[in-house]
């Protein structure tokens, strides 16, 4: 009789290291910075009247920084708590 695979699912241990999480966070920060410059270029270069960067730029930065802070704290929590 083959073993019941559901019974084997009692405890799944994922091979996660804090180093991989730090690396993921770093990649995300780089992506945020690149995307910020790409968006800024577009908002600045096209359009005539309304200027979206007035609210778009701070909104993008504030939320992005908050997300990065939460991710940093969670990686720190994963590693040290």
């Amino acid at each position: 009789m083959p073993e019941n695979t559901v019974q084997n699912l009692k405890n799944i241990e994922l091979p996660i290291s804090s180093g991989a999480m730090w690396m993921t966070l770093l990649i995300l920060i780089i992506v945020f910075v690149i995307m910020y410059f790409v968006f800024s270029y577009h908002w600045k270069s096209v359009g005539i009247e309304e200027n979206p960067k007035v609210f778009a730029r701070p909104l993008f930065w504030i939320v992005s920084v908050l997300l990065i802070i939460v991710m940093t704290l969670s990686v720190a929590g994963f590693e040290y708590l």
Binding site: V6, L9, K10, N11, I12, E13, L14, P15, I16, S17, S18, M21, T24, L25, L28, F32, S64, L67, I68, V70, M71, S74, V75, G77, F78, E79, L81
Partner: peptide, 26 residues
């Protein structure tokens, strides 16, 4: 109807969930 738990080798899995969720949100 499965009773199983997930853990991480390198640390507390709860923080991994938080990190994954906010990375996804980003």
């Amino acid at each position: 109807p499965f009773d199983f738990s997930i853990s991480a080798t390198g640390g507390n899995i709860f923080y991994f969930y938080i990190f994954s969720y906010f990375a996804w949100t980003s």
